[in-house]
Design a protein around this nucleic acid. Structure first.
Length: 583
RNA sequence: GGGCAAGUGGCCUAACCUGGAUAUGGCAACAGCCUCCUAAGCUGUAGGUUGGGGGUUCGAAUCCCCUCUUGCCCGCCA
């Protein structure tokens, strides 16, 4: 994308030269914007004071001093105090097409940076299936990881498995001690039973029966407490048993994640930090700090009031009164572990973790750790009835959402009679791509810090600003290329001067800068927005400009179509969505 | 009580970090467009005091203060 940069440089230089001639101070700042009605705009408000002229007059004076066309600048006009520059589209379009054609599916991908980035996401407790309220985590995390890979970073995605604590111990107890008969009765008593045969859905019933049996039953409570103590003491048998149950549950969770194209590179088990003593080391290091203190009954804490922590209690407790470690203590050990093998550590977390994350950062600082995790928070998805709760049955499972979306996509394909030449298997594959695409897109398109109310009609939307809208354009482009057969690539921008052709090429050229923005801000919702821009520009082009019947510009247009296919294919890859060649 | 985040046409949403022109799209509504490359599409119409109030600025959806509403948090839980 040399031409765009060159163009911007030329504009800037021309303006600076004009300003110098007008006697403006040399350090005058120039602001550059890219608006809709021009390729580059420079507002003249800042110059107004220094030159003692109204902005509108400044703009007009400068515009009068710069002769166009000149280099890559094809025209310049002054309007409302702005200088609006237009680029010579011919070299620009040629440049875009050449680069995309040369790089193909690597277009937008940066050279390897060698920066090791760890993206921890999902990390949901292995005590039940993934529901839509939590689905934002894997979707945002996976999308971010994919974008960072495009940036050339060495990315590892990672799931922190919480296989420690009362919840998982109860869960394992339930798996070991609850009989099938008890499970059957529990299901019968449930108002809206969960019919899904996957393990993660089934084991929830063992967990529920266990909770009920243990409640108000002192001998059993003691049994659980006993297990917990053994666990904390590092008893390998107990830890391994609980881990095995957690692994079973995780199998179900991973199947769900795989369905939405999310694969984790690595799993780290919380229990490791108890077994290998890392959590104990953290305790010793924190105890040695000047912020450390001990309650009368023996619990240790660090006081974080000097670290910007507010509230009625600024103490951050890191051991129980009996000296055992807490979740956050182990999380500190985990972060040290991640720092030891990464340059950047990104934690995708629910907004309920904000305070915890802040405390973690402060504790790391107290320990003398120089690196800081980069948290990425998302607000919860709720239902119109309120907050999601498995217990209250106010819940939509991700498995059910994906199934429903896939079914609807299947019907749309069959109803649209678009499957005459397809096998059943092909139809199913496309339906899955579309269903999953709709679900992922719908969640990732909204800014992470925005509260989201889940509505089936939105999640299952296949038109307008939706995942399938982008996929449809990909399929359309593929269809044209299929029908065209072999053609000679033609990147000559002088053959693509139609307004829609130029607009499309300009949109394509923005891909790399979108990736750079996401790298810097972690705002993954910019990717679906960009994809929508590409798709919309293509659809307009498609409606206005014939390709196969284009005569002399046929090859050039086919090249533009092919470039769109590559860019959109890469966008869809970043979004973890399939790119169907027909739909 | 304190802290953190969000509030944008009937509904959802973009731009907010880094202040710039007439506030981006979509859904729903209305009116058009398939003898032509996939109508999951395209074109047009209508719909806004960016929750409210103050301030900074030549200029505020964007920054600051106040206020209201909503969500999240303030465990020797994970």
């Amino acid at each position: 994308m040399k031409v765009q940069e060159e163009f911007e440089r030329e504009c800037e230089e021309a303006v600076l030269a004009a300003l110098a001639e007008m006697g403006a101070p040399a350090d005058l700042k120039i602001v550059k914007e890219i608006p809709d009605n021009a390729d580059l705009a420079i507002p003249c408000f800042t110059m107004s004071k220094a030159l003692r002229m109204p902005p509108v007059a400044v703009a007009e004076k400068i515009a009068g001093m710069i002769e166009t066309p000149r280099g890559l600048i094809s025209s310049l006009s002054a309007l409302n105090g702005y200088l609006n520059f237009t680029v010579d589209s011919v070299p620009l379009v040629s440049d875009v097409l050449e680069e995309v054609s040369a790089r193909k599916e690597d277009f937008g991908k940066s050279p390897e940076t060698g920066i090791r980035v760890n993206v921890e996401h999902t990390s949901t407790n292995p005590t039940g299936p993934v529901h839509v309220g939590r689905a934002r985590n894997p979707i945002i995390g996976d999308t971010l990881a994919r974008c960072l890979r495009m940036r050339g970073h060495d990315v590892t995605t990672e799931y922190y498995v919480n296989d420690v604590g009362k919840q998982v111990v109860m869960m394992s107890w339930g798996v070991a001690h609850v009989t099938p008969e008890e499970v059957r009765r529990e299901i019968e008593e449930t108002e809206k039973p969960d019919e899904n045969p996957k393990v993660d859905h089934r084991l929830v019933y063992n967990y529920r029966v266990a909770t009920k049996k243990i409640h108000n039953n002192p001998p059993m409570e003691e049994e659980i407490a006993q297990m917990l103590r053994k666990f904390e003491a590092g008893d390998a048998e107990t830890i391994d048993y609980v881990k095995k149950v957690a692994e079973t549950m995780l199998g179900g969770i991973n199947a769900t994640l795989a369905d939405i194209n999310v694969h984790l590179d690595r799993y780290t088990w919380e229990s490791e930090f108890i077994k290998n003593g890392a959590a104990k080391d953290i305790v010793e290091r924190l105890k040695a700090s000047k912020y450390a203190g001990q309650e009368e009954d023996g619990a240790w804490y660090v006081d974080l009031k000097d670290f910007g922590i507010h509230g009625k209690n600024t103490k951050f407790t890191f051991t129980r009164s009996d000296g055992t470690t807490l979740y956050t203590t182990r999380d500190l050990a985990y972060h040290e572990d991640k720092f030891s093998r990464s340059d950047r550590v990104i934690d995708v977390l629910g907004e309920d973790q904000k305070l915890g994350s802040q405390q973690l950062v402060s504790a790391l600082q107290i320990m003398g750790e120089e690196k800081k995790p980069e948290p990425l928070f998302y607000a919860f998805v709720s239902l119109p009835e309120g907050r999601m709760s498995t217990r209250k049955g106010v819940v939509v499972y991700l498995d059910d959402l994906v199934d429903e979306a896939t079914d609807r996509a299947y019907k749309a394909i069959v109803d649209g009679n678009k499957c005459k030449d397809m096998t059943e298997e092909e139809i199913m594959g496309i339906a899955r791509d579309i269903g999953v695409g709709a679900v992922r897109y719908n969640i990732v398109r909204v800014g992470a810090d925005k509260q989201l109310v889940f509505k089936w009609e939105d999640a299952l939307s296949f038109d307008g600003n939706s995942g399938p809208y982008l996929q449809y354009v990909h399929a359309r482009a593929c269809s044209i290329l299929r029908k065209a057969g072999d053609f000679a690539r033609d990147t000559d921008g002088s053959k693509l001067t139609d307004e829609y052709e130029v607009k499309l090429a300009k949109v394509l050229s923005r891909f790399e800068s979108v990736l750079a923005d996401i790298d810097a801000t972690k705002r993954v919702n910019m990717m679906p927005a960009y994809g929508h821009d590409v798709a919309a520009a293509f659809n307009q082009f498609y409606a206005q400009v014939p390709v196969l019947q284009a005569g002399a510009s046929r090859d050039a247009r086919l090249t533009l179509v092919e470039c769109t296919k590559y860019v959109l294919g890469n966008v869809l890859w970043c979004l973890g969505m399939g790119a169907p060649e027909a739909m």
